[in-house]
């Protein structure tokens, strides 16, 4: 391991002298700066240009705080469900053999490929108040579309692959031996899962969950269709930003953007930190 790293370092030195490594890096960094950093800074600047006081009052415009709260709690609740179901799905796919497994495995990727707007549309078609199923549920007092459950549903659809695909490879690496060892030592299936499997999966589940949450905070295309966007009730933060832009309040839109961006960026940093730690641990444990 150590020799390899040294090797690479030498190579890097060699490369720098040999051809224009700095030039390539320059291209990469300028690209990122132009595409990501400058635009984001522009939004930050817009939100803060009239001082923190205005930034603060922008965040308390009508519906703003409600939208933020709605976004946060729906994302959190949905993340919990997705973490549980995603882990279970990964476990079933990795550990069990059953008919239809290959199809299931392919279906998990479908939400990556389908436009989120179409996702929203499908949910409205299925559960909208004028539709058969949605109407029947509505008659029984269960409103899904144009209410918060539809937000949860859309987010679950969109983020489904994130936890599954984070947990799956770790579970594959975790030898069946460990579970069998636990069984032969007298542990029940639940004890085995709780004390042997779950601790090994926890880092992967956490990063899958964080990604789910971060992705959910920003979701727009599906929610704008299913939520009904009633200010103060079913209007989420991204939809609120849209409203502020269309209403001609760019500074207020920037303020809310800044809040969401800060959250997203913190989550990404946290995720990166977790993954680095995990990688170091795994290198340590490699036999």
């Amino acid at each position: 391991m150590i020799t390899h790293t040294r090797h690479q370092r030498e190579f890097r030195g060699l490369m720098a002298g040999r051809w224009n490594a700095g030039g390539l890096r320059g291209v990469a960094i300028i690209y990122l700066a132009f595409m990501i950093v400058i635009p984001l800074s522009a939004v930050a600047n817009e939100g803060l240009k009239d001082g923190l006081g205005n930034f603060w009052s922008d965040l308390h415009r009508f519906g703003a705080m409600g939208a933020l709260r709605l976004t946060l709690w729906t994302a959190a609740l949905m993340t919990v469900i997705n973490v549980i179901m995603g882990t279970l799905t990964a476990y079933v796919i990795v550990r069990y053999q059953f008919p239809g497994k290959a199809i299931l495995n392919a279906l998990i990727d479908l939400p990556i490929a389908i436009p989120t707007l179409v996702t929203g549309l499908m949910i409205v078609i299925l559960l909208g108040p004028q539709e058969t199923l949605g109407g029947w549920l509505g008659d029984h007092g269960i409103d899904i579309v144009f209410a918060w459950p539809a937000i949860i549903l859309a987010l679950l659809f969109i983020t489904f692959p994130l936890v599954v695909r984070a947990v799956q490879p770790v579970l594959e690496e975790l030898e069946v031996d460990q579970e069998e060892a636990a069984y032969s030592l007298g542990a029940s299936p639940w004890q085995t899962f709780r004390y042997v499997v779950l601790p090994a999966l926890l880092p992967a589940i956490t990063s899958g969950g964080l990604l789910t949450f971060a992705r959910a905070l920003g979701e727009f295309g599906s929610i704008v269709i299913v939520a009904g966007n009633i200010p103060g009730k079913t209007l989420t933060a991204p939809v609120h930003i849209l409203g502020e832009i269309e209403g001609g309040f760019p500074r207020s839109a920037s303020a809310m953007s800044l809040v969401l961006l800060t959250l997203s960026f913190s989550l990404i940093i946290l995720l990166d930190w977790l993954n680095t730690r995990r990688k170091i641990e795994r290198d340590d444990n490699s036999v």
């Binding site: 030898e175 031996d177 460990q178 069998e180 060892a181 636990a182 032969s184 007298g186 042997v196």
Partner: peptide, 15 residues
Amino acid sequence: QKRGVGFVFQNYALF
């Protein structure tokens, strides 16, 4: 769980 056997795995399978 109920057989009362101890099993040592080839790759040890330590937790």
